[in-house]
Computed example of a mutant assay.
Amino acid sequence: MARAAGVAGAALGRAAAPDLLAAVETWQAWLRNEKRASAHTLVAYTADLDGFLAFLAGHLGQAPGLADLAALRAADFRAWLAARARRGLAKSSTARALSTVRGFFRWTARQGVMENAVLPTVRTPKLDRPVPKALTAADARDAVESVGELSDEPWIALRDTAVLLLLYGAGLRISEALELTVREAPKPGQDGLTVLGKGRKQRQVPLLPAIGEAVAAYRAACPWPLPEEGALFRARRGGPLSPREVQRRVQLLRGRLGLPASATPHALRHSFATHLLGAGGDLRAIQELLGHASLSTTQRYTAVDSRRLLDVYAAAHPRARD
């Protein structure tokens, strides 16, 4: 770790006046000793600050010192952000770099070393939120119906079918499905399930009849003891089933069914939400079913459905094909 800090400090020496370099080295020591930052984090933060100071050296025409940083205007910070954009750097990378610079400026202010009043007014670049990648209804159905064909052991085939049904049929996260205990297992005729999601927040999800039936079939065939408080879904040797094993199953399905690379266990949850929305489901209700804390997270699915509608329009409307 000390070697990483030393290398970073040497690099900064080319783009910082002595007083600023001394402040940076003290900041690095604070990160290392007080904040207990890892070597990886320390190198990443130093690289972010190094890039900012290197830009300032060219922007100001000299290696910047503490007085130069205190005198920076909002336009100077925006010029740095614009330079990163011109270089094609990802917005997420720039947002992290700006966070690092802000952290350094907050530290210098607390230490009484240097303060800049305009930096807090500089807005973080708005990140592009990825659009959820859902499967088509036919692909999602094929995945659930075909996963059992991947195993020559009947109980494992039944287990995999039950797991994927919970993901696509009830919108569970893979962790939520695999954390179910035997006591919590859906039963035939049960029309709802209490799920413990992120932040230990409980929610109620409705159950398709097929889910309770699939879980019951798996339990009846499972060769391992299933105590009430134990994990419902078991691996081949009897331990709790891991998310990685479910991911491997879906990966095999991609090759067998010709599914896109975006077909993952989590894509089945995305498909649950997208298909409900496409069938006229209420956005607020879907938010509750998914356990999203914010409606804005659920609203990403409207982009998926709008894109699907545009594709249908382009393929079907007579004038769209002119």
Rank of each mutant, 00 (worst) to 15 (best):
A4H: 04
A5S: 03
G6E: 01
V7E: 01
V7I: 05
A11D: 02
A16D: 03
L20D: 14
A23G: 11
V24A: 10
Q28L: 02
R32Y: 03
A37R: 09
A39V: 02
V43T: 10
A44H: 10
T46R: 05
A47W: 09
D48N: 11
L49C: 11
L49Y: 11
L49H: 14
G51S: 11
F55M: 10
G58R: 04
H59P: 14
G61E: 00
G61L: 10
G65C: 11
A67I: 14
D68N: 14
A70V: 13
A71E: 15
L72D: 12
A79N: 01
A82Y: 02
G88P: 11
G88I: 13
G88Q: 10
L89H: 12
L89Y: 14
A90D: 13
K91Q: 14
S92K: 11
S92Q: 10
S92I: 06
S93H: 11
A95E: 13
S99G: 15
F104Y: 13
G112E: 13
V122P: 12
V122F: 05
R123I: 11
T124Y: 06
P125W: 06
K126R: 09
R129W: 10
P132H: 04
P132C: 05
T136N: 07
R141D: 04
V144M: 05
G148T: 12
G148D: 12
E149W: 06
D152P: 12
P154T: 15
P154H: 13
W155L: 15
W155N: 15
I156N: 07
L164C: 06
L165R: 03
G171E: 03
L172H: 01
R173I: 12
A177F: 06
A177D: 04
A185Q: 03
P186I: 08
P186Y: 04
K187M: 02
D191G: 08
T194W: 03
G197Y: 09
Q202N: 10
R203I: 10
P209N: 02
A210E: 08
A210N: 01
I211M: 03
G212M: 08
E213V: 06
Y218C: 14
A220W: 02
A220T: 12
P223M: 01
L226E: 06
E228C: 01
G230V: 02
L232T: 05
L232N: 01
F233M: 08
R236G: 07
R237P: 07
L241Q: 07
S242D: 11
P243H: 00
V246I: 09
R249P: 05
Q251M: 08
R254V: 03
G255L: 10
R256L: 01
S262H: 02
S262E: 07
A263G: 08
T264V: 08
A267K: 05
L268A: 08
R269W: 05
T274M: 08
H275L: 02
H275C: 04
G278D: 03
A279Q: 09
G281K: 08
R284M: 07
A285M: 12
A285P: 14
A285F: 14
Q287L: 11
L289R: 03
A293L: 13
L295C: 12
T297D: 05
Q299N: 03
V304G: 01
R308T: 10
L310W: 10
L310T: 14
L310I: 12
V312H: 04
Y313C: 00
A315C: 09
A316N: 04
H317I: 01
H317F: 00
R319H: 02
R321F: 04
R321Y: 01
